[in-house]
C-alpha cells in the first residue's frame, strides 16, 4: 500500500510540472487560436538566458529581472513580426510560423549561450521527506507549490482584472472584440509575454532537475498528451491532464513496467491520449462551443 501511495504522490507531483508546461500552450491557444510549437523553445530560451546570466556573475534577482524583460521584448517582437502580418490566416499557417519560430528561438539561444548542458542550482535541496513510511521528494513538493501559486495568480489575472476580462473576450470571439475597440494586438503581446513567463518558471524547475540543455525544448512533446487529455482551452484542464499523465506514468512504470521490461514512461502518455481522443476529443475540461440551435 505504501508503495502505491508513494508512486502515486510522486507521479502527481511530477505531473504538476507537466501541467505547468501545458498551461503556457493553453494561454496562447485560447487567445490566438494557435498551437504554439515554439513554446518549448521559448522555455529553453528563458532558462538558458537565466543560467547564462547567473554563470556570468549576475545575482539571482537581477538575472531573473533581465530574463523576464527579455521574454517580454520577445513577446512584443513575435506579435509585431509574426502574428500581426499573419492576422486572419488559417490556423495551419500560424502553426507553421510557430514551427519556424521554434528554430529561430533555439538557434539564437544556442548561438549566444552555447549548447553544452548547464547545471542550474535554484538552491532547493532535493532531500527526501518522510510522511509516515511514504517518501516524498522535497523538490517536487516545492515545484508543485510554485505551480499552484502561479495558477492562482493567473486565475486572478483572468477573472479580476480589466486586461483579463478583455483577454477572455478576445479568446472567445475576436471579431466581437475588434468591434468593441479592444486593442487585440496589445492583448496578444500580453498573452505571449505571460506564456513566456509561465515557460520561464517551468523551464527553471525542469532545468534544475535535469540540467538546462537543448532537450529541454522537447518538453513540448510531453505537453501534447497533457493537452489532449485535459483540453486545449482550459487551464484547469491542463492541470488535471498533467496530474493524470504524471500519476499514470508513474503507476504504469511501477506496476505494468516489470511485465513489459520497463521503458513505459516515454510512450504511456501518448497511449493514454489516444484513448481520450477516441472517447472524449474535447478533453476532460475543454470548452465545447456553447451554441444555440
Amino acid at each position: 500500500m505504501s508503495l502505491f501511495l508513494e508512486t502515486l504522490i510522486g507521479g502527481v507531483l511530477a505531473g504538476t510540472l507537466y501541467a505547468l508546461v501545458a498551461i503556457g500552450f493553453v494561454l496562447i491557444y485560447k487567445a490566438s487560436g494557435v498551437f504554439n510549437y515554439a513554446q518549448g523553445s521559448i522555455l529553453l530560451f528563458g532558462a538558458l538566458a537565466f543560467v547564462s546570466l547567473k554563470d556570468a556573475g549576475v545575482p539571482v534577482a537581477g538575472a531573473l529581472a533581465i530574463t523576464v524583460g527579455l521574454l517580454i521584448v520577445t513577446a512584443i517582437a513575435i506579435e509585431r513580426l509574426l502574428l500581426r502580418p499573419l492576422t486572419n490566416r488559417s490556423p495551419l499557417t500560424l502553426f507553421m510560423a510557430t514551427l519556424g519560430l521554434s528554430y529561430v528561438a533555439e538557434g539564437v539561444a544556442q548561438g549566444f549561450m552555447g549548447s553544452q548542458v548547464r547545471a542550474l542550482d535554484l538552491g532547493i535541496e532535493d532531500l527526501p521527506m518522510f510522511l509516515g513510511d511514504i517518501m516524498i521528494s522535497q523538490f517536487d513538493l516545492i515545484a508543485a507549490g510554485v505551480a499552484a501559486l502561479l495558477v492562482i495568480a493567473l486565475s486572478l489575472l483572468f477573472n479580476r482584472t480589466r486586461i483579463g476580462i478583455q483577454l477572455r473576450g478576445v479568446a472567445n470571439d475576436t471579431l466581437a472584440a475588434l468591434s468593441l475597440g479592444i486593442d487585440i494586438n496589445r492583448i496578444w503581446q500580453i498573452v505571449w509575454a505571460v506564456a513566456g513567463l509561465v515557460g520561464l518558471v517551468s523551464g527553471l524547475l525542469w532545468g534544475a532537475r535535469q540540467g538546462v540543455q537543448f532537450s529541454l525544448s522537447l518538453v513540448v512533446l510531453k505537453a501534447l498528451p497533457v493537452l489532449i487529455i485535459g483540453g486545449f482551452t482550459s487551464i484547469a484542464g491542463a492541470i488535471v491532464g498533467g496530474v493524470v499523465v504524471g500519476a499514470g506514468e508513474s503507476l504504469a512504470e511501477t506496476y505494468i513496467g516489470p511485465f513489459l521490461g520497463g521503458g513505459i514512461t516515454p510512450w504511456f502518455a501518448y497511449a493514454l491520449a489516444l484513448v481520450f481522443l477516441f472517447i472524449r476529443p474535447a478533453g476532460l475540461l475543454g470548452e465545447r462551443q456553447i451554441e444555440r440551435v
Binding site: I165, Q166, R168, G169, N172, D173, A176, A177, G181, I290
Partner: peptide, 19 residues
C-alpha cells in the same frame, strides 16, 4: 450578436467599457 458566450452578462458589458 457575437456575445462572448463564455463570459458572464456583466463581463460582456464590461468589455465594452474599458476603452
Amino acid at each position: 450578436r457575437h456575445v462572448f458566450g463564455q463570459l458572464t452578462v456583466e463581463e460582456n458589458l464590461l468589455t465594452g467599457g474599458y476603452l
